[in-house]
Amino acid sequence: MLDVADLVTAYGKIEALKGVSLRVESGRITCLLGPNGAGKTTLMMTIAGILQPRRGTVRLDGQELTGLTPARIVAQGVALVPENRLVFPQMSVHENLLAGAYQRRGRGEIASDVERMYARFPRLQERRAQLAGTLSGGEQQMLAVARALMSRPRVLLMDEPSLGLAPLVVAEIFRIVGELNRDGTTIFLVEQNAHMALQVAHHFYLMEQGRVTFSGTPGELAEDEVVQRAYLGARRAAG
């Protein structure tokens, strides 16, 4: 469904992505694991159009996304839940959700989608009038996910949703990820928490120093080896 081919993104002279190719299958959860600085966030930002690649392509169902503005990419059906959540702090929870539907027309449908989000995330309903900046980290993460879903994406990209959250909240987030997927959402997840990610993923990639170094299903590689490579970036561990 989402095809990334030979993607190169650079900051000045430093290439953060050195030719990344991977594929996100429709209806599945695909995970990307890797140590800090591997280029995971750069990849997400490039797919979302915030960063421009120097080379390579991103396609959604065969349609070229490379070179489109972030707004056009959202319209094509790709929504990113960014790292560190990035909610609109001075806007209410409700307004944040409406902003998520910015590209869509039809007030009635948007309103019923908002209600659906409240049903899925009851905490957000309790805090619907509260300013998003005053929410806890876990609540902000839920709001960021709900906001992304409001655009009715075909693919949901999530960049480190567990970052800085307490273990119980992380478990809750991953429960929601699984639930969303069962309801038919295609998810591409970047994580450092390999243990949690491998429990939900159908397929995963390992990324080290701007390159994809492994592709397979969670059963294919022992978890401790994945963890070792994902955390320590130790290619040596593989041989």
């Binding site: 707004a71 902003a99 910015y102 992304a148 655009s151």
Partner: peptide, 20 residues
């Protein structure tokens, strides 16, 4: 709404599809 979103966080505004 778009303007207030940009005021709040320009990157997030891009990500929800606002032509910043």
């Amino acid at each position: 709404l778009a303007l207030r979103a940009i005021i709040g966080n320009p990157t997030a505004a891009h990500l929800v599809g606002i032509d910043v």
